[in-house]
Simulated assay, not measured.
Amino acid sequence: MTKNSTLDRLEPAFDRFQEAHFWIHGLERYYHQAEPFRWHLNVFIKAIKEIVPLVRKALQNESGFKDWFEPFGEKLSADPLLRHLFKNRDYVVHHGMLALESSGSLGITEGRGIKLGLNFPVNPNEDSDDAMGAFIRALAVNGDFLGFLAEDEDSLPCVERYWRLPGIDEDVVDACARAWLILGETMAAVAEWCGIERPQFNLQCRHSSQQLHFKVYNRKSLRAKLLDLRAQPNFVMAADAHDAAPLSMEDEN
C-alpha cells in the first residue's frame, strides 16, 4: 500500500466528509428560511450517511483493514445521534419530507440574548419573516402595548428561532455539527492507519449562537408596515387596543 494510492482511493470519502461540512454552513445561512433549511439538512444527512460505506469500499482489499475498522464501524452504528439522523434520511427516501419542529420568540435584542420576548408560534413550513409579519399584524390589531416598535437606539426587533428533529433534544445545527465531529474522529483514525499524519478536524468556523438563532429587523420598516395595515379601509382595531408610545412616521428622517 502506497500513501499516494491510498489517498486517491480515500478521496471520495474525504470529499463527502468536506461536503457535509459545507452543508453545515448552508444550514447556518438558511436558518431562518424554512425550505432551504430543510433541503440543506436533507443533503447533510445524505452526505454523512455515505462516508463510512465509501471508506469501506476504498480500503476493503487492504490487508488488516477490515478487522481494524470493525470496532469503529460498530461504534458509529450504535451511536444514538447518527442512528437517529440516518433513520430520518431513510424516511425521506421512502416516505416524504423531513418532519421538523420549530419554536421561537419575538422581541427585542441589544446584541446579546433577548431583552423582551414573547413566545410566538413559528410554523416549521414558514420563514422567520412570516412569523414577524404575523406578529406585526397582531400588533396592528391589538396594539403595541409593550412598546415593541417604540424608538430605542440601543435595541432592534428580532426573531429568536430554534429547529429540532423529533427525538433529538439539541438544536438541529448543533446536532449536525456534533455528528460531523463524531465521524471526524473516525476519519482521522483512518487517515492515520493509512500512514498519513492524523488530521485535526474542528468547527471553529461556526457562527455564534446569537448570529444563528437571531434575525434582527429594522424598526422603522416594521412600524411602516403596521401603519400601512391600520390605514387599510376595512381595518378594525380591537376595542381595548393601545400603543405604549406614538407610532407616527412624521418625525422619521
Rank of each mutant, 00 (worst) to 15 (best):
E74R: 09
R83W: 02
E126V: 06
C158Q: 02
R137K: 14
Q200S: 10
H40I: 04
L139Y: 03
R223M: 13
K46T: 14
R38P: 07
R89G: 05
A134H: 03
F148H: 12
T186S: 12
E110P: 01
V141R: 14
V92P: 00
R83S: 15
E153R: 10
R16I: 15
A138I: 09
L54W: 01
R137Q: 13
L98W: 05
C176V: 10
E28K: 11
F17R: 04
H32E: 13
E19R: 14
I196G: 04
D174L: 14
H213V: 13
V173W: 10
R137F: 12
E70R: 12
G133P: 02
D127I: 00
V236F: 00
T2L: 09
P80T: 04
V43H: 12
L100G: 04
G117L: 04
E153C: 09
F14G: 11
S102N: 06
E70A: 03
F22H: 13
N4T: 11
D130I: 06
R161F: 08
I48F: 07
Q60P: 00
K225S: 08
R161K: 12
S63A: 15
C158H: 07
Q33S: 04
A134W: 02
L76V: 15
G26V: 03
W68L: 06
V93E: 08
L7I: 12
D154I: 03
K220N: 07
P53E: 09
A239H: 11
P246I: 01
G104K: 05
I168P: 11
N234S: 09
T6S: 02
F44T: 01
G117I: 07
H21W: 04
P71W: 01
D79P: 12
L139E: 10
D67Y: 08
S103F: 12
D130E: 15
T109A: 11
F120A: 14
L229K: 01
E74K: 05
L7F: 06
G64F: 01
S128T: 06
M249T: 08
I24G: 08
M237S: 13
D169H: 04
Q232S: 08
L10I: 06
G64D: 11
A131S: 15
D152S: 07
N202D: 14
D129T: 01
A150N: 09
E50D: 15
L203T: 11
I24M: 06
N119V: 13
L106V: 15
L106G: 02
F44H: 11
V92N: 06
E74V: 04
V190L: 08
G111N: 05
A241W: 05
K225V: 04
A58W: 05
S5N: 07
H84A: 02
S155V: 09
E250C: 05
V216A: 10
L7Y: 08
R198N: 10
H213W: 05
F72Y: 14
A244P: 05
M249C: 06
I24K: 05
D144W: 15
M249E: 12
H213F: 08
H242L: 00
Y31I: 14
A34Q: 07
L98V: 03
A175G: 15
L183Q: 14
L139G: 01
L227Y: 01
D228E: 07
P36M: 06
D144F: 03
F14R: 12
R16E: 15
V122F: 00
E126K: 09
E110S: 10
L165M: 07
A99P: 09
F69K: 11
W180H: 10
K87W: 03
A20F: 08
M1L: 11
K66M: 12
S208A: 10
A245Y: 13
K57W: 11
F44M: 03
